[in-house]
């Protein structure tokens, strides 16, 4: 799904290295790039090489992508830091698996901090998109390339093994006309009839580095204002709202459908952009919702962003299953049920 969407988005350069559970994408790109005259697929010798090839392709103006899973994404962090510093667009797919270390190959959400806090060295942010369905995966892949170009910054799609192996009917958007994309007046293609260009990340002069840092910070503020996005489900009358993203959000939705059947007023808040985090929308909800339940396939990472967003205005509960465990909707429904009744009991006591 990502592969086809990427090709339709105009991706013409892919470099990757085999790692489970995302090899289908690498294989798809190998076959998709082969017939394209302007398409390049390179099976790189390492994740490091792959992300650096993407840097080169991006410098040359191509829409470029790489993909991996958690341990491989750790290796790519060097390149992601440089992409951010050099203001180069690129799309990086992380199909998260259990960790730390080699971990396992089961779906997990343990890379939230790494993805949203920068991951590599230095003062930067990466746009992080978290699709929760096949259709959204396709749509967000195309959006990712646009964001990357518009803001000249790396964009990560944060999914997991569950998302990667999903079979769902998808309607693909029409392919992008590469000729109609905005020109890139910064790209490197030889200084013919213009002054030579330099794309660098070395700024030895501290004043210049500070200026560059603030420039990036202002860009991140703009991004935060313009693209923070979340999806809600039955939150209008909710006494309790579950906050979850990606696969966890799908499971949570199933649980909410079940508890709604027995009359519990519970809703779902699903961040679509993890960075920028949809802070305001959560804060808005806190005017009516006293209790939030954060559900993650980790020991609690997005939890911190939720707490920061709420500024202490509501109670935040947490339920997590790390290590590649996939909860069932019934399991989550039970957690919701007990929280919900505790809340009602408290209200009666007041």
């Amino acid at each position: 799904m990502i592969g086809e969407a990427a090709v339709r988005a105009g991706c013409r350069f892919y470099a990757g290295y085999p790692i489970t559970p995302q090899n289908e994408l690498t294989e798809y790109m190998a076959n998709a790039m082969a017939p394209l005259e302007d398409g390049t697929f390179v099976q790189a010798e390492s994740e490091l090489a792959a992300i650096n090839m993407v840097i080169g392709a991006s410098m040359a103006g191509a829409r470029a992508m790489t993909s991996s899973s958690s341990p491989g994404i750790s290796l790519k962090q060097e390149g992601i830091s440089y992409l951010a510093a050099q203001e180069l667009p690129a799309v990086i797919i992380n199909t998260m698996r259990g960790g730390p270390g080699l971990g396992n190959i089961a779906p997990s959400q343990g890379d939230y901090f790494q993805a949203t806090r920068g991951g590599g060295h230095g003062d930067y942010r990466t746009i992080v998109l978290a699709p929760a369905s096949g259709q959204e995966l396709a749509n967000l892949t195309m959006t990712a390339f646009d964001y990357a170009d518009n803001y000249r910054t790396p964009v990560m799609i944060l999914g997991d093994g569950m998302m990667g192996q999903m079979m769902e009917p998808v309607t693909f958007p029409d392919p992008v006309d590469l000729q109609k994309l905005s020109p890139k007046p910064w790209k490197l293609d030889g200084a013919d009839g213009r002054p030579s260009r330099v794309i660098l990340s070395l700024l030895l002069d501290t004043a210049k580095e500070e200026e560059h840092n603030w420039k990036l910070a202002r860009k991140y503020e703009t991004i935060a204002r313009e693209i923070a996005r979340a999806d809600t489900y039955m939150t209008q009358d909710a006494h309790l709202v579950v906050i979850a993203y990606g696969t966890a959000a799908r499971i949570a939705k199933g649980a909410i459908k079940r508890v709604r059947e027995i009359g519990l007023k519970v809703g779902l808040f699903r961040p679509v952009t993890l960075w920028p985090f949809p802070q305001r929308a959560i804060l808005e909800l806190s005017r009516f919702v006293k209790d939030f339940l954060v559900f993650e396939m980790s020991t609690g990472q997005m939890l911190e962003d939720v707490k920061l967003s709420l500024e202490g205005r509501s109670r935040v509960h947490f339920y997590g299953r790390p290590g590649g465990i996939i909860s069932t909707p019934d399991e989550i429904a039970k957690v919701i049920n007990s929280l919900y009744h505790r809340q009602r009991l408290e209200l009666e006591e007041e």
């Binding site: 650096n52 090839m53 993407v54 840097i55 080169g56």
Partner: peptide, 12 residues
């Protein structure tokens, strides 16, 4: 990483 970056540039 010069050779990898150059690979991306030259292939494009």
């Amino acid at each position: 990483r010069g050779a990898a970056v150059a690979t991306g540039l030259k292939r494009t």
